[in-house]
Write a protein that binds this DNA or RNA. Structure first.
Lengths: 222, 222
DNA sequence: ACTTTTTTTTAAGAATGTGTTAAGGTTTTT
DNA sequence: AAAAACCTTAACACATTCTTAAAAAAAAGT
């Protein structure tokens, strides 16, 4: 069963959507303010429906915080039909934007699209040899010994571990980590890989987990 | 560089979008009818912008055919703002639906969202006897034993395996691997073929996978 | 405002890949 | 059967691509 978090301050609307989603077989969490939403963030949530106008923290702030912590799809619901607002939201990481008032069926259809897109590896824990990476709480252990990675380092390792046996080309890694319209020096990736290797080596000097495929990319070594 | 296919029968709109996208650094293909779109389907396309009303095959038919063949994200553009139409399209596999008239910026933002979601794992596998080549992984196995090829070697083997039963002339191979405006010594190809054969022979000494066609080129041996 | 952490760039050395040469083998032509 | 044309492959020099430490820049935290 898939879980959806509704972030919407209007009690009636929130409840209405909840009923609708439960009827369709989803498990539902409700938040009526931004702070409440952030508290629920540790729950295992597959999708977030986010209303923009919230008391306390507003929608923009919320999505920013949510997205830096986890990669859960977020659908923004808003009465504001302004282009700049939309673009701003998309840039902050929104996956869809639906203008109120909308038909329930359209919302359900858009929810399905997002859930379909969601990686099959919605598994929060990735393992590779004695390496264990937990997507949810941002931790990595090597032989049960925790290793602290920075955000980018973690992201790169995560992508590598999500696709074992597969060579991730540099261009894919750049796209996934820095976005397709962001240009950083070619060598930046090499440096990050080097730092990841360095940290891994401190815990297990006998194994080089990341394999270099010359002029192509990197891969987790079997 | 990422490639977008515009399917839209209105010449002006199609050209306008093309210009816009090219200015943003995308490579663009244009189709003005459904049938034309299907012909372009073999090109390497990262995203499709699809107008619903088309002469010949309509949008619904197109999306159905497209989606059964490949998993390219499709954004539907349409003047129709009807819920049932939308839902139907989403069910056929549309990834987003944007109602005309729309702002260019919103379209660009939605394109970016789709490209960001693009799956890393679209596995393209070529087989020939006990040889298996995975285009995405940059891996080759012979009898399940992995073989490591360099970039050029891999490229050559890929082209050969993409066209089984067909003799690839040296000039085609040169064009594909080194580009038509790049001139390397004639013998370079021979040397690379030799190295490929050498690596294959190490894994399976009993078979010579690549056949030499004297004074013409090479072919995978049946 | 200051400190600390993270990210990116730079640069030099190391590792690996590439194209050429050249010697020898094979096939085709005469 | 000899000659010509073409192919194979080992070896080498040169080019490209990686690695990593260190410095600079940017971002985050206090």
């Amino acid at each position: 069963m898939q879980t959806i978090l509704i972030i919407e301050d209007d009690k009636d609307i929130n409840n209405m959507i909840k009923q609708l989603l439960e009827k369709k077989g989803f498990k539902v969490f409700q938040a009526f303010s931004g702070t409440e939403a952030l508290l629920l963030h540790n729950e295992n949530i597959d999708l977030i429906l986010l209303d923009l106008m919230l008391p306390g923290k507003n929608g923009e702030e919320i999505i920013e915080i949510l997205k830096t912590k986890k990669s859960v799809p977020v659908i923004v619901m808003s009465a504001i039909d302004d282009v700049d607002t939309k673009i701003n939201l998309f840039e902050l990481g929104a996956d869809d934007y639906i203008t109120k008032p909308f038909h329930n069926e359209e919302m359900l259809a858009r929810i399905k699209v997002q859930l379909k897109n969601k990686k099959v590896t919605s598994n929060c824990i990735l393992k590779h040899k004695d390496l264990v990476l937990n997507i949810n709480d941002f931790t990595v252990t090597c032989n049960q010994i925790p290793i602290i990675f920075t955000k980018n380092e973690f992201e790169i390792l995560k992508i590598l571990m999500e696709h074992p046996n597969q060579v991730l080309t540099k261009s894919i890694l750049f796209d996934q980590v820095w976005g397709s319209d962001n240009f950083v020096d070619d060598n930046t990736l090499n440096v990050h890989i080097s730092k990841i290797r360095h940290k891994l080596k401190q815990k297990n000097p006998n194994y080089d987990y990341i394999e270099t495929i010359w002029s192509v990319g990197y891969r987790m070594k079997k």
